[in-house]
Amino acid sequence: MLEFCVKQNVFLYAMIAAGIAGVWCLFWNNRFYTRAIRDLGRLKEPKSKWTRSVLETCQKKAHPFSNAGAFMRSQIAQGRSAGMAVPTLLRGSQNMILTVLALSILSLWAIYRYRYGEAELMRYLGTGIALAGGLVFFRLCLDFGGKEEILLNGWTDYLENEFAATKQSAVLETVQQTERQPVQAETMAQAGTGAAKAKPQTAGSESAKERNELFADPEKEARISKVREGIRQTAAAESRFAGMLTPEEEKLMREIISEYM
């Protein structure tokens, strides 16, 4: 079996595939950190889906952050790139390095056992060292630990300073609005009561005004007095018109005038 794998270059192809997979994991992991760091300067309009998700989670928090660093580490662990979690991509690159080394050792042992030529030995050895060394080199150059530190420091500063101040201002404004609502309701109720009281007073004052205007005119008052006096004279039994009426008509007239008075 080992001889067949060596002859068909199975180990060689497997090492190349593992190296490509390791580069793929490093690429997507680096892409996540790069976009997240760029969004630190545009948190009001982020382009990364992960950044928007973190901001939404922060908005849902009712209390200030007691440990922003721990919170951000948990959020970074939940970050995804290319449909995979960031810690999974990082472990994937490590596993690909170990896979290349394991395949290199296995292929060298098979070549030594079946006594293949030195050229075959150097080919597998060179391929294994190049792929494993290249993955380690790329990982060191990308410096994921430093990028994670930059991300943590930026978010910690934002959450403990700017976001905390914004959250406190929003809470204070909400409290002030809540306190103003009962005062406004009481003011409106007092205004309504005052208007209801003022309306009858206004109606009464208008009636009094009309009466004052009516009796303020001397001519009108004199005419009213004459009519009243005439009615009294007609209603009196000694009136000169009393003999012109029959007893029944005089009785009816007296009743009408008495009812009117």
Rank of each mutant, 00 (worst) to 15 (best):
D217I: 08
M84F: 08
M84Q: 12
S205N: 11
N29W: 04
E179V: 05
G19S: 06
V54N: 04
M253F: 06
A85I: 00
Q168V: 06
V171A: 12
D157K: 06
F11R: 00
Q190I: 08
A70P: 10
A208D: 11
I37Y: 01
S104N: 07
E160S: 15
V10E: 11
V171W: 05
M261L: 09
A170G: 03
K49S: 03
S81T: 05
R123K: 13
L2W: 08
P218I: 04
V10W: 06
E186W: 04
T57C: 09
A18Q: 13
K220M: 11
E248F: 06
S104D: 08
S225D: 15
G204P: 03
T202S: 15
A170R: 10
L142Y: 10
N161P: 11
G79S: 11
A222N: 09
E255G: 10
A216C: 13
Q168N: 09
A82Y: 07
F4L: 10
E259K: 14
A191G: 14
S48K: 01
V23Y: 05
E221H: 05
L26T: 00
A170Q: 12
N29I: 00
L142K: 01
L142N: 03
L245H: 03
A216S: 15
Y158G: 01
L214A: 08
E149N: 14
S48F: 00
T246P: 11
M15A: 08
P218K: 04
Q201P: 05
L89P: 05
L40D: 10
N161Y: 09
T34N: 06
L106D: 09
M15V: 00
R38P: 04
G133H: 09
G83R: 00
S107Q: 07
I37P: 08
Y112I: 08
E255M: 03
A82W: 07
I111P: 06
L151E: 05
T174M: 14
F137N: 12
A203D: 15
E210V: 15
E219C: 08
N9R: 15
K47D: 14
L108T: 06
M122P: 04
L214T: 07
G128C: 07
L12E: 15
D39A: 00
Y33V: 01
